[in-house]
Design a protein around this nucleic acid. Structure first.
Lengths: 109, 109
DNA sequence: TCCTATCCATAGATAATCTATATATCGGCC
DNA sequence: GGCCGATATATAGATTATCTATGGATAGGA
């Protein structure tokens, strides 16, 4: 019963920042968005998500605001800050760099 | 001074197995091979490498044998086992799956 | 009224990696 | 002869990120 990881470690912050770059969203919505866009391959557990959002807040990459959802529920909406957008750019290019490098190692040539 | 990780967490075992799938090699040689193939992007620290090799040994994915190198030094050569080859296949396809999923989340569409 | 989906959050365990250190030998150079 | 860089293995300890397991609360539909 080979247990599959829910996501690639080290990529969660990037995925969250990218999701928020599309539009401000609350935690639960971020998790749903990632799950759906990835065709259920990536699952963000609450125990990973909320600590991650705390990290991002502390780093100043996102800001948070309590609001009502369209379905009339209270939720904490996160918005990307200017430095957050910059950080997203950094993480995207670093990820690209890593993936390219791994691809070279995995090549058979 | 944004500290760059030496590699993507969760990919080390796969990189080692892939390297050994080309030819048996000793630890130091594995690290060098990965570093060179990746154009110095991926660096496998000793403190990551040797524990990883212990994991792989314990799992039965590799076997080890003390030998002399071409330069006449003693070194422990690791060889992929049959289950190791199978495991490599699993890890490659799981990695592919993850990367594809992440790619979908990162798309702008 | 009950159930499911929506929403937040934390504690504790686990796993993987990095930093730092220790040891040893070979070969080349001064 | 002595030093140094590259080769080679290994472990302890810290750090970080993730997962498991909870807990609580509310809206809306059956």
């Amino acid at each position: 019963m080979a247990k599959r990881p829910d996501l690639l470690p080290g990529t969660l912050d990037m995925l969250i920042l990218k999701t928020l770059n599309r539009a401000p969203l609350h935690g639960y919505g971020i998790a749903l968005s990632i799950k759906r866009l990835s065709d259920d391959v990536l699952t963000v557990e609450e125990g990973s998500l909320y600590p991650a959002l705390q990290r991002l807040l502390l780093a100043g990459w996102v800001k948070a605001e309590w609001k009502q959802t369209e379905t009339n529920r209270r939720a904490r909406y996160y918005t990307l800050t200017a430095t957050g957008r910059k950080q997203l750019g950094l993480e995207l290019s670093e990820f690209e760099r890593m993936i390219t490098a791994i691809g070279r190692v995995l090549q058979d040539a």
